[in-house]
Amino acid sequence: MHLPDYDDVCRAHRRITPWIHRTPVLTSATFDAMTGATLFFKCENFQKTGAFKSRGAVNAVFGLDETDAKRGVATHSSGNHGMALARAAACRGIACTVVMPETAPRAKVEAVRGYGGEIVFCAPRNTARQQTLDALVTESGANVVPPYDDARVIAGQGTCAKELLEDVPELDIVIAPIGGGGLIGGTALSTRALSAHTKVYAAEPANADDAYRSVQAGQRLIEDAPDTIADGLKASLGELNWGIVTRDVDTILLAEEDAIIEAMRLIWQRMKIIVEPSCAVPLATILHNPEHFADQRVGVILTGGNVDLERLPWL
C-alpha cells in the first residue's frame, strides 16, 4: 500500500479547499490556567458535517476519475466518516452506501441519511463491519473509501494540522485522538514537514487502547469490540497508520472513561461549544498528565461535534 507523504497532503488541500471550511483556532484562559500550558484548539466541530472526516472523504471522492466515480462509493463507519462520505458523494452527484453498526448514535444515522447516503446495518464488531462491506462491494462494484487506512483519506486528514501550524506557528506539541489512525497519521505528516521540532502526541481511550498496546508490543494488535463512550475511536489502528505512528508519533496517552466525560462537559461549559466524547479525549489526557504539557504551547485538534442530545453521557 502507498504510504502518503506531505506532498500528498498539499495536493489534497488544493483539491478539497472549495468543499470544506478552514476551521477557526480558539483559546481558553480557563484551560490554560487549569493545565499550566497555552492551548490552541483547532475546532473541527465547526467543519462541514461537523467533523474533520470531511477532509479525507472529499479528497477521496474528488480524486476519483469519471469512470470510477460512476460506480459510486461505499464504506463502513460508526458515523462521522459515513456522514462525510455521503456529503462528498452528494457534492459530486454519485451514490454512497454506508455500513453502520446497529449501536451507532441515532443522530449520526439520521445525518447519513440526510446527506443522501444509503445505510446497511451490521453487528457492533469491527470484523462484522468489514465483512458486510466486502459483501456489499462484491455485489455493487462501488469504490471502497476506507474510514482511515487509506492514503487519500490520511492525506486529507493531514490538512487539518497543516492549517493549524500555518495559523499558529512555534507549537511545542500537537495532540489529536487516535482510533483507526487516519487523523493522527495525517497530523504527523504535516507536523514533521512544517515544524520538525514539534512533538506529536496521540490521545486514546483506555478502554480502546490497541494503539498504545501495539506500540508497547512492537506489533500492530487488533481489538474487535472495545467498549468506550468515545464511539469514534473504537476502530483498531490501520496498517498504513501503524507505519506512520511507529515512525512519527512521540507518545500515546490514555484517558479513562470518567475523564473523557469530564473533559467533554468542561468544553461545553467553559468554551460554549459542542463536542462529542471522542473529541474530548485529548483534553482529558492533558488534564490528567500535566507533566507533559506544563509551560508548553499545545495545538489540540477538536475532532467533531456530532452528539445525540438525548443521550448526553452526564445525564
Rank of each mutant, 00 (worst) to 15 (best):
D248I: 10
V275Y: 07
G218P: 01
Q219G: 04
H197F: 05
A95D: 15
I267L: 08
P282W: 09
D5Y: 03
R22V: 00
T251N: 06
M100A: 02
A111P: 12
C91P: 00
C10M: 10
D250S: 14
D149N: 15
D32Q: 08
T75A: 14
S214E: 03
D167I: 03
T138C: 05
R92T: 08
V144N: 12
V137N: 07
Q130A: 15
D258C: 10
I252H: 06
T23H: 02
C91S: 07
A12P: 00
Q269I: 04
V98M: 09
T228P: 14
P4K: 02
G218H: 03
D68L: 13
D224Y: 05
I267G: 02
P277I: 07
V98Y: 12
R247W: 13
D134P: 01
P282K: 04
T23L: 00
T30P: 05
A203W: 05
A155R: 04
D65E: 04
W242R: 05
T285N: 03
I94P: 05
D65N: 14
T246H: 05
E118Q: 15
K162T: 07
M264Y: 06
I178L: 03
A193E: 02
A280L: 08
V144P: 15
T17M: 02
G114E: 00
S140R: 14
L64Q: 03
N126A: 14
D32E: 10
H2C: 01
R270N: 08
G116D: 07
R14V: 14
I301A: 08
V215Y: 04
Y201N: 04
Q47M: 03
L85C: 09
D172N: 12
R14N: 12
R113S: 13
A202I: 02
R311Y: 11
C160P: 02
A107L: 10
K108V: 09
A90P: 08
C91N: 11
N80Y: 04
L240C: 06
A208F: 04
F40D: 00
